[in-house]
Design a protein around this nucleic acid. Structure first.
Lengths: 332, 332
DNA sequence: CTGAAAGCGCTTACAG
DNA sequence: CTGAAAGCGCTTACAG
């Protein structure tokens, strides 16, 4: 491996001068600089980033935790974060937790050392318990895509899921639906509260009995929950699913039952994934500004790194918006 | 930041002893070890991995290039690679190229330094031109998911795409189909050659005119290409799509045309993505051993790192297998 | 089993 | 504008 010292010898200067040429922080005489650059080219010198990190105390790497990378939401988040990071000259160290707390803990422990300048934690599954591990950490931490109440110590940039649910509810209300049913995956989902709020505004109540829990946020989970919902409340004219994937399952269940969507049953979903566009009918869904979220979180992180201080623990809520497609129609 | 030196002072030993305790490479007297561990706990000492990397010459990090992370195929690849890596005590530095050559080049240049012990390059899009950059690289490189001819210098563990196409063709042949049509995304896809080979075995030819190119490997691309194919060859009883996503588009096009799948048209696809399972009818498709591929590639890489020599440039081809579902049926 | 020394390849003040 | 020195926090032989 060719080092700075080798370049210096070849150029007839000391390695400090090579360092100066590379960093550009100190002016170097043009002739000298030319000689140095020539030596670099001839030798094919590439700086050792590990050595630089040790000397500067910065690895120019940001760690990112996501539950998984195999859903469109988190995949987009990762790619957007990587883009934003690259623009700032940082690299991405990826850790997928698979919603496994123990796994998350291990990864977290591995990063606590100087190998990362900052940490972006996207998604609260499996990780919340281990956040205290980060307490005595030196580097900035930002939370995002946080659906549950977030620890106040960390800044969080997330989505107003409650508002997303509200938009879904308001949409159905405007279409005239009163008798509705809800498919949710975790019990206490802010999307459900928001949905209820929209109905409450019109003096209507969405009773607990109208809310059906899916065993898991999957197509299968959606099918079963929807079957149950339609059986329990056959008079419902609309259905809200807290996740697109549940709604796609509901579409299938409706078809199996001989219901036509949206004529017999309007379906509104949340998260607006590509799968919703592929479904037939195409899904009306609440779109999430997740790319903006990633970008903003990275901005906060980079600002904190460069500012030399932890990002201030503020809370930023991004607003989703509803996209009406073919799965909802006015109540006739 | 608390250093090894701090721990040593607290424990009344030198830092070498602390190092010995941590590495376990040199035996340490139990009493001493206990004192050291106590000091570590009291101080909350965490080793600086950057310093360790500089001293050892290994960052215990592997870089991975993928075109994107937002398709199930590559998402799985990344997660599996991460798992395999973690089992060996390595971390994952992720670079998504977005099929953008310039972007790939930049990332590649950023890794050429000591920040990574090895490199896994998955997917040939956008990168092939820049592979020479890696020539004088010190660390091991393995290529995977390589559909085009791979440079001989690097070991490659990939999938036998030609065989995948063959399986699709043989499936249709066994069902009695003779008059078929093909949807492909890149012009020269080994899947198409394999598909043809299956027909050739029975003395049948799949003419060029039966192969329709999709503008892009997307749902939309599949719809258009399938419309064109059905118009050009209305007598075809079966269709092969080189990618699930094209096949899902074909399903839509068939529905629009009033064709029933599989009664009027059998559809067989390749890649077996989750979307194919969600489609109606569910897609018969060729499943790829992509997780095994990632795992094997990482195994090669770790072996090379630990062995201290570049992975030998061998070529490993993993076999796909066909999964029959509802989109294909015998010719009546 | 434990300690003194040198070194990994850079950067950062600090003289000249 | 350029060079000598110290240091980043670890590990690795090598004595004792």
């Amino acid at each position: 491996m060719v080092t700075m010292q080798d370049v210096a010898e070849r150029a007839g200067v000391t390695k400090q001068t090579v360092s100066n040429v590379l960093s550009g922080r100190v002016a170097v005489r043009p002739v000298t600089e030319a000689r140095v650059r020539e030596a670099i080219a001839e030798l094919g010198y590439v700086p050792n980033l590990v050595a630089r990190s040790l000397a500067t105390g910065s690895s120019r790497t940001v760690g990112m935790f996501v539950p998984t990378v195999s859903t469109a939401f988190y995949a987009d988040l990762v790619e957007e974060a990587e883009d934003a990071l690259e623009e700032h000259g940082y690299r991405l160290l990826l850790c997928t937790t698979r919603r496994d707390g123990e796994r998350a803990r291990r990864h977290l422990a591995g990063l606590t050392s100087r190998s990362v300048d900052a940490l972006l934690i996207a998604g609260d599954q499996g990780l919340t318990d281990h956040l205290p591990l980060l307490s005595r950490t030196r580097f900035p931490v930002v939370l995002c895509a946080w659906e549950t109440p977030a620890p106040a110590r960390f800044p969080v940039v997330t989505i107003d899921y409650e508002h997303g649910g509200y938009l879904a509810g308001r949409h159905l209300r405007r279409l005239g639906h009163e008798n509705v049913t809800v498919l949710a995956s975790p019990a206490h989902d802010p999307r459900v509260s928001g949905f209820r709020r929209a109905f409450a505004e019109d003096g209507l109540e969405v009773p607990d009995s109208a809310v059906h829990l899916a065993s898991e946020p999957s197509f299968r989970g959606g099918v079963s929950a929807a079957e149950e919902a339609m059986r329990a409340r056959p008079s419902a004219t609309a259905l809200f699913a807290t996740h697109d994937v549940l709604a796609v399952g509901a579409l299938e269940a409706a078809r199996d039952r001989g219901y036509s969507v949206p004529d017999d049953l309007s379906v509104v979903a949340h998260d607006d994934t590509p799968g919703g566009l592929l479904a037939r009918p195409t899904l009306t869904s609440v779109a999430l500004p997740h790319r903006e979220m990633a970008r903003e979180a990275i901005g906060l992180l980079v600002g904190a790194i460069e500012g030399g201080q932890p990002a201030e623990p503020r809370r930023r809520l991004l607003l989703p918006r509803l996209i009406a497609r073919d799965s909802t129609s006015p109540l006739v």
